[in-house]
Design a protein around this nucleic acid. Structure first.
Lengths: 203, 203
DNA sequence: GTCTATATCGGGATAGAC
DNA sequence: GTCTATCCCGATATAGAC
């Protein structure tokens, strides 16, 4: 359920801010820039968000809610970890792509290192742990080739940024193909794995 | 020759600014922050750099000079493109790692989209072309598996960011291993390819 | 080449009318 | 819930003494 808690006006602000943050960076985007792009005066923003930081925090939550929820629900599904990882990656990339909020680069913005965003960083770290766990499990099951699971998770997650680049972005299938060719012991299993991933039940 | 054109004082500013930019972001780092970390007063910066933007521009050039030069000199070496790409990747990752200037994340900072940094963006695009060319050639030679060369280049380049992450970063060998396993038709050739890459002559 | 002092501007945020 | 007007602060950059 995307942003159901936000009013239409707040959603417009979020969408507009996300685009500006992604292109120019968080600190380089002023609340006046956001307001102008939305078509209102600058103080109007503050009827929807108490502070500029709250806009960024909301965007991070919007971007991570689904990837976190998908990973959590896959945890209790009986299936090879490599299959679950594939499904998770596809869902997450597609979520970020479909989202009217341009989120991929927002999740790596350095401003998140500030204390104010400790809660948002915790969400990112939780997601890293979930991905790390899937890779660890895939290693035990023999599908994933020898790799430090933390390293593997980091490398998979940095690939998300390829969708956020200027000009023509890399598509989710291309990222999935690259990631799984790098991760699997036997990449020839990829089509079969892809098929199994598509049939996984997701609430 | 790293930063030979800069005075020792200017180098201290560059090193310090690079670290702060990488952690907090360019716009979120003030010239006062830089000066305080260097141990001088804020206006002292301006005896070495006419503007804050010039510091960022200098860092981008410092980070790209070597990768660009290595790629250019490899162009005229007679060797398989996959071997040259391997050597280029190792040199470039090591350069960024060894550099007292923390550069990986600086090369993707959104502020570079501003007109002021058109020249610096051009350098990045040139590097993307060089990598794309190596992948295209590797494809023709049969070493690289079917992939859009532009996509491949983008994915290889985003992996650089894995070295810049907070906490424990991913090491160059891990990135090389991941990238080439994803790129090669036959990853079992990787050790041999690595050996050949190490013996390539570099001026 | 570094200092103090300062000019100037833009940014985040609030007050209060409508 | 949006507007105008405004406050206050921090940021970049300059001037001029040492």
């Amino acid at each position: 359920m995307p942003a159901s808690q936000w009013s239409p006006s707040a959603e417009r602000i979020l969408r507009t801010a996300a685009r500006l943050f992604a292109v120019h960076g968080y600190s380089a985007t002023s609340t006046r820039d956001i307001a102008a792009a939305v078509g209102v005066q600058q103080p109007a923003i503050y009827k929807h968000f108490a502070a500029k930081d709250d806009i960024l925090a909301a965007l991070v939550k919007l971007g991570l809610e689904r990837p976190l929820a998908v990973a959590a629900s896959l945890e209790v599904v009986a299936a090879p970890a490599a299959v679950k990882l594939h499904r998770w990656l596809r869902e997450s990339l597609q979520h970020l792509l479909d989202s009217p909020y341009v989120l991929a680069s927002i999740l790596t913005t350095p401003e998140l290192e500030r204390d104010r965003f400790a809660a948002e960083r915790a969400l990112i770290e939780q997601l890293e742990r979930q991905v790390t766990d899937m890779i660890t499990q895939g290693l035990r099951e023999g599908d994933v080739r020898p790799i430090n699971p933390v390293t593997g998770a980091r490398l998979v997650l940095v690939l998300f940024d390829a969708m956020a680049l200027p000009e023509f972005a890399v598509s989710p299938p291309e990222i999935i193909d690259f990631a799984f060719t790098a991760l699997l012991n036997d990449p020839s299993h990829l089509p079969e794995l892809q098929h199994q991933a598509d049939s996984l039940p997701l609430p």
